[in-house]
Each structure stands twice: as C-alpha cells, then as structure tokens.
C-alpha cells in the first residue's frame, strides 16, 4: 500500500489531530466534570446526569461560614505572591552564580541545597512547628512565606541554573571586555534571555506554594489559613462534601486558564528568540 508523500502527509495530519483531541479530552475531561459538579444541585451530584438545573448554591456556600473562601483566597494569593516575588530574584542570583563562577565545594553546595528537599515534610513539620512557635511566626504570612521559600528555592535555583547553562557565555565575555560591569551584564544580557526560564520558575514557585497543604495545616490556625486547608474542611465527619470542593476547585482553576495562556506564549516566544541567536 504505497501512499504518495502528499497522502502520507494528510494521514499524518489526521492522526496528529486525533491524538491531540484525545489528549485534550484526557486532560480537560476531569476538569470539566469537576466544573459541572460545582454547578449541580446536591441531588444530582452523585449521578452521572448531564441534564440538571444549574445552581450557584455551592459557590454561595463556600463564601459563607465556616469556610470563608474569600479570606482564604486572599491569604493564598498574598503568601504565594510574596513567595514568588522574593523567591525568583533570589534564586536567579544564586543560579547565575552557580552557573558562571567556579568555586570550591560548588558541586557539594549545590547538591546540598537540593538535598534539603529529600526529607518528607511529614517528619519535619513538628520541628518546624516548635521553631515557629519560638519565633512567634505561627499563623502569620511572614512565617508561611518563609517556609514556602525554603521549599521552592532549591528547585527554582536548579531550574534556573539549567536555563542559564544553555546561554553561551561569549556575549557576556564580549560585553565585559567592552567594560561593562558584571551586574550590568546580568541585567542587560542575561536577564532578557532567561525571561522564559524565569517565567517557568515563577509559575512553579507559585503553584507549589499555592498547593502546599501540610505545612499550612499545622502552622496556621485562623489568620493565615490558605485555600488547600479550606479544601480539607470539606471532609466533614459526615462525608466528603465533593460539590463544595468542586466549587472551590473551579474557583482556584479559573485564573489559571488566563495565566497559562501567557505562560505557554512566553515559552514559545523565548524559545524562538533562543533559536535565532
């Protein structure tokens, strides 16, 4: 069965189209189902029906007591936001240093930073609790930002170092020969090229601190409680209030649609620039 190149191209195009469609169903299906659940009336939540009277009751319920999703949302935004704002520049500086300079014990140091993340949180959370108690950081934004930084920094440094490693040093060297200082080189040459990397690292940090559950659970009480902890309050002793989780989940995911469009654009944009150089 011989196919002309044109026919082959067409078959391949179709196959690719089908594959992408399947992929989108696999990725979006569960999310769509969660969204549907969030607008279902309680009597239809545990059925597979697609025909129901949509309701906003679930959304209304999550903003009221005892869940207060509104306040928790603010906490989550603030904690994750500050984590990114502080974490990414700090990680970038360290990553640059790890990537460009030679120093003693660099390898060990780098590995050491990464290795701090090897111990499962479940075991260090009690010591953390004791430490924060001494420092009066329990249930504060500061404490939560701090702990999130310690989680995201190692990975952010590692990811950013990977990006910086792929940028040729020649341009920097040329600029330095022309008399530019190192800091200027970083600002004017390195930073623009690492923007896609910075974006990914930023998103990574944001999502990580956004989703942190265990630390937030033990280290907050009422002032700094975050969304994932609220999510867990839907596990009542009377069962899992799945419809409320779905409503909160929808709420958490919607902004991500917007963010992700820009994220992927920057990826491609940055990568294109890279290939042009």
């Amino acid at each position: 069965m011989a196919l002309s190149p044109r026919q082959r191209g067409r078959v391949l195009f179709c196959l690719r189209g089908i594959a992408i469609a399947v992929l989108l169903v696999v990725l979006l299906g569960p999310i769509a189902w969660i969204f549907l659940t969030s607008i279902k009336p309680l009597s239809d939540v545990y059925t597979m029906t697609l025909f129901f009277d949509p309701t906003l009751d679930n959304f209304r319920a999550i903003f009221e007591r005892p869940f207060y999703v509104g306040d928790r949302l603010l906490n989550s935004l603030a904690i994750s936001g500050f984590t990114v704002l502080i974490g990414v520049p700090v990680a970038l500086a360290a990553a640059y240093s790890f990537s460009r300079f030679s120093m003693r014990f660099k390898k060990t140091l780098f590995f050491g930073v990464l290795a701090t993340q090897f111990v499962p949180p479940i075991v260090v959370v009690l010591p953390f609790f004791l430490m924060f108690r001494q420092l009066h950081l329990l249930d504060t934004w500061t404490g939560m930002v701090w702990i999130n930084l310690s989680i995201v920094l190692p990975f952010a440094i590692w990811m950013l170092k990977g990006f910086i490693d792929t940028i040729p040093v020649e341009m920097e060297e040329a600029a330095m020969t022309d008399g530019a200082t190192r800091l200027r080189v970083i600002r004017d040459i390195v930073l623009p090229v690492t923007i896609p990397g910075v974006f990914v690292a930023g998103i990574f940090c944001f999502i990580f601190s956004w989703n942190d559950f265990l630390y937030a659970l033990i280290l907050t009480r009422k002032e700094a409680v975050t969304l994932p902890v609220v999510l867990s309050t839907f596990y009542t002793e009377e069962g899992d209030r799945w419809e409320l989780m779905a409503a909160t989940g929808t709420f958490i995911l919607l902004p991500m649609f917007a963010i992700s469009y820009f994220v992927q654009r920057h990826f491609v944009h940055g990568a294109t620039q890279g290939s042009d150089r």
Partner: peptide
C-alpha cells in the same frame, strides 16, 4: 491547557 492539571491542588 497544559498548566491546568499541575495547578490543580492534589487534595482536590
């Protein structure tokens, strides 16, 4: 779509 599954809280 690709960021969404990762952004979804593991609890949910």
């Amino acid at each position: 779509v690709l960021v969404l599954p990762f952004a979804m809280s593991p609890a949910l």
